[in-house]
Design a protein around this nucleic acid. Structure first.
Length: 311
DNA sequence: AACCGTGCCAACCGCCCGGAC
DNA sequence: GGTCCGGGCGGTTGGCACGGT
């Protein structure tokens, strides 16, 4: 057992087999890189022996794919990458490999870590803050009648709170999805990368800009929510209006009929096209999975009407 | 200066899937 | 059809860094 393993706090159970564990040294990295450059990785299990490394093949593969492989992007995530992660996570849950495949230079491990340490926490904090704000508005201050709270604010809080809770719930439940969803995920990736997916993201951006410009108090704090951009209908929350975009408010805001209606038309067209594509799905899932309605369309990953994912 | 708590992230572990036999 | 094996994936662990007391 070497010093490094002692520092790592791990008893090298494989030491008796001559297999080293723990952090990789620069020397080991160099050996691995040189070998793969010359011979390719071949069979991972036999690689350590041929390369002269005292590691198991699995460890070599992990080190290569997550750290040494060319094209790995280090450093902080950009706004765009973050937004993509959130959107894809809303669709696929904890399927990090699928998400990573859409973000060049980032590994599944890195995305998983980023989600667990940054995004998930941010989502929970925001949801709690919003719920707290709502409670304060409604009960803590007797002189502060809830009717005096701006409908826009109240509606926004309800909306964001409900959506975040549902999004978090979905992320937890997604781990329980059956393997049949793999093919569904593939199909969604196809859509995501198509022109349709591209235009869908543009349309969504339009709605977000509209939303942000009229809900500054939410937009300024709701980085998670505003960038995730995948409003979700929460079934177990008492919010009667959460599925409707904010339409009428006391501050005189009147949504632009033109931009709204054209966006809705685009969304409607998008929905129809997607439905057509999904009819060709090799998986054969029923269309309860993907429903259109007057509010737009919904993707119900668990096929429960109470947990639909609203676009 | 020492200790403690917390966040980050590289690495490990165990399970699962698909291909070969 | 059953078994074995390699590889991939997601969850978890634990050392390090850093800030607060």
């Amino acid at each position: 057992m070497n010093l490094n393993e002692v520092k790592m706090g791990k008893i090298a159970c494989c030491d008796k087999n001559g297999v080293k564990k723990g952090a990789w040294t620069p020397e080991e990295d160099q050996i691995l890189v040189n070998y793969i450059k010359r011979h390719g990785h071949g069979t991972w299990r036999s690689l350590p022996k041929h390369a002269g490394l005292l590691r198991c093949g699995k460890s070599c593969r992990l080190r290569w794919t997550n750290y040494l492989r060319p094209g790995i992007k280090r450093g902080p995530f950009s706004q765009e990458e973050e937004s993509t992660i959130i959107q894809l996570h809303a669709m696929f849950g904890n399927r990090w490999a699928v998400i990573a495949s859409q973000i060049p230079g980032r590994t599944d491990n890195e995305i998983k870590n980023y989600w667990n340490t940054h995004l998930k926490k941010r989502g929970i904090c925001l949801a709690e803050n919003l719920q707290h704000s709502l409670l304060l508005c409604q009960s803590d201050n007797p002189s502060h009648n809830k009717d005096q709270v701006s409908p826009l604010t109240r509606h926004s809080i309800q909306w964001e709170s409900a959506r975040l809770e549902a999004e978090l719930r979905l992320s937890m439940e997604s781990s329980q999805l059956s393997s049949s969803t793999n093919k569904i995920a593939d199909h969604f990736l196809l859509l995501w990368n198509s022109e349709i997916g591209k235009s869908f993201r543009q349309i969504k951006s339009k709605h977000e800009d509209l939303y942000r410009s009229h809900v500054p108090e939410i937009a300024s704090t709701a980085k998670f929510g505003s960038s995730s951009c995948v409003p979700i209908q929460a079934g177990n929350i008492n919010n009667n209006h959460s599925t409707n975009m904010i339409q009428q408010e006391e501050d005189g805001y009147k949504p632009s009929t033109d931009s709204n209606s054209s966006s809705l038309c685009e969304l409607s067209d998008f929905t129809n096209t997607v439905s057509d594509m999904l009819l060709d799905s090799p998986v054969g899932f029923d269309l309860d999975f993907f429903q259109g309605n007057e509010d737009g369309f919904a993707i119900s990953l668990d096929r429960s009407p109470d947990n639909s994912l609203m676009f």
